[in-house]
Nucleic acid binder design. Structure first.
Length: 187
DNA sequence: CGTAAGATGAAG
DNA sequence: TTCATCTTACGG
């Protein structure tokens, strides 16, 4: 449950739930785009599916920074995904933002995504990165600058289930989404 | 060194 | 179901 001030970023599993309903806002030269966070996944250094598993390296370094650090990674040669780092500095934790409900700048998002269907704009981790115009230059920065969190809504009900696209720790219930929301990703 | 697989998405 | 096509991890 989000508070009125800031989401709880003390732990990735807690934060994954706490972040649901918060508005993720990106201020860009072309305009402001934003959306409510409706789907998340929690990752931790003790989790074999996590990029932070096995210790700190160049690629996962942002995950070991303080809570609120932005972690953007490149995957499959084509896509980018964005995480919000959680936990104390030195602990490799983060929450993957998997889906948003578009709020501001829908036209700009359509333009960036090259699609006209609002329901296909931000219903996947790489889709929302493209729609918001998030670049790797944000990697390692803190939320609160051009990319920030603002209060949104309090989810009525949250569904907890297994994560998507991983091959390790597949049984862990570390994916959360706003029950019934139409912008949740469909694998 | 070579090679395979990866927190995905779009097209065929 | 396949492919796009980059980076890292790991084996020889």
């Amino acid at each position: 449950m989000p508070s009125n001030n800031l989401p709880d970023l003390s732990d990735s599993v807690v934060a994954a739930q706490s972040l649901l309903g918060w508005k993720l806002v990106h201020e860009t030269p072309e305009g402001i785009v934003s959306g409510y966070i409706v789907e998340t996944e929690a990752y931790d250094m003790s989790d074999p599916a996590s990029h932070s598993f096995g210790g700190e390296r160049a690629r996962n370094a942002p995950m070991y920074q303080e809570a609120g650090t932005i972690y953007v990674y490149f995957i499959y040669g084509v896509h980018y995904c964005v995480n919000i780092v959680t936990g104390p500095k030195g602990h490799g934790q983060a929450v993957l933002i998997r889906a948003l409900e578009p709020v501001d700048g829908v036209e700009l998002m359509k333009q960036r995504r090259g699609v006209d269907n609002t329901s296909q704009l931000t219903n996947g981790p790489a889709k929302l990165v493209q729609a918001l115009g998030i670049a790797t230059s944000l990697n390692g920065q803190q939320v609160g600058g051009v990319l920030r969190l603002e209060p949104g809504f309090t989810p009525q009900e949250i569904t907890q289930t297994t994560r998507i696209g991983i091959s390790k720790a597949v049984h862990e219930l570390w994916r959360y989404y706003v029950t019934g929301n139409q912008y949740v990703s469909k694998p």
